[in-house]
Write a protein that binds this DNA or RNA. Structure first.
Lengths: 210, 210
DNA sequence: CGCTTGCTTGACACAGTGTCAATTGACAGC
DNA sequence: GCTGTCAATTGACACTGTGTCAAGCAAGCG
């Protein structure tokens, strides 16, 4: 067990993540977070000037913990464009569950809080770069349908891979993670890389019904 | 011009919709709505017990105004399953922009307000029935890939047609409505009805860039 | 005239965010 | 041991937004 001394900002971030990741979590208030951390509400403000700052810091902390770069690395080593697309979809799709708790919280305040919206957009923009790279690789292979707009293909892949779609399929519809991955992979491979064989994976998943 | 007398609840609903549909609208407060209606804040509470009730009532009022049933009717008259899927995707895709303002507001409070979430879910469940009917028609035609789970196919179509996806592509990425429709139609037709010809419409849209 | 209906004004409770000031306790350096 | 500093505490406060309550007012109607 690690008995290292943890500084207060880190303690706050950990407590925040724990609250956000709790099953069926409500959006925690600053009081909730302070209580969970074991300090006073004001002490939280000593380290994070606002709720939004704290949420943003929590996402960054989480990315560091999860080493998102490492998770997405395999896709960068792919030989062909199709392979790269495949690897990227799988890697990101499997990364989503790890960030979903925090993502939910950020997305929830996005409509009322411009700063949070900006933070979330930045994060999604990072992911979009992965999409763009995969599309670029396909383009260099000539695996993209003729006259394809690179931007448009990126938009589509980015949308298919959105956290909202993952949420809809796995949380609302009760799909298993495997089923989600197989379907989205098939969709992306078939419609973007025009690998029609990939269609066999779509809707061919046997899930134990929720 | 209609110079009919309009009762106060209706006035409130109309003012609310107007605020919600304003370009770049923030989520209106009860005070905003009262001001826009031209009555006192308390008067709003005389007709709608809470903000959530008002938002829900506004969506119902809007559905009545837009005659959502009529808009989706053509799909019910389709001869083949594929035709039905096609018509449904087009009809719903073109209906989304009409409800987007209100949808945004409801979705925004969904994370904090269980009642709003329920109202929104009901509405989306109604749409899901349209998806299910189209899938059913495909199944009866035998146009679905073998061993396809009907529920799963419905989930997928329902997710593809989500307001969030429309929002992402048209609002965030700046796609035109036509482009959105063409792409989602192609995606649905290709991956669910396995009409591979439909893929030619995907990513083949020339938009004036935003 | 008096009653009802719909609305008004103004006050209030409550939750949540964010700010401020005074205080405490620990710890380091001289 | 004294002093300064830093982190945290307590308690108060302003502000926004929701929702409640009570008293009053004006119009219409029997």
């Amino acid at each position: 067990m690690s008995s290292e001394v943890i500084d207060t900002p880190t303690k706050i971030l950990r407590a925040t993540l724990e609250l956000l990741e709790a099953p069926g979590a409500k959006l925690p208030t600053m009081s909730d977070i302070a209580r969970a951390t074991g300090i006073s509400r004001q002490a939280v403000y000593l380290h994070f000037p606002s709720r939004t700052d704290l949420l943003v810091a929590a996402t960054r902390y989480q990315d560091r913990q999860n080493q998102v770069d490492a998770a997405l690395a395999p896709s960068r080593g792919a030989r062909s464009g199709a392979e790269r697309l495949d690897a990227f979809v799988t890697a990101w799709g499997n990364y989503i569950p790890k960030i979903y708790g925090v993502a939910r919280a950020i997305m929830a305040v996005t409509d009322t809080d411009a700063e949070a919206a900006a933070a979330w957009n930045t994060r999604m923009q990072d992911m979009r770069e992965g999409c763009a790279a995969a599309i670029q690789a396909l383009a260099e292979d000539g695996s993209l349908p003729p006259d394809t707009d690179i931007e448009q293909a990126t938009d589509l892949l980015w949308t298919l891979l959105s956290v909202r779609n993952w949420e809809n399929l796995t949380q609302t519809c009760g799909w298993s993670q495997e089923c989600y991955i197989a379907t989205i992979r098939g969709l992306a491979m078939a419609t973007i890389a025009r690998d029609l064989g990939a269609l066999t994976d779509v809707l061919a998943c046997t899930d134990p019904p929720a």
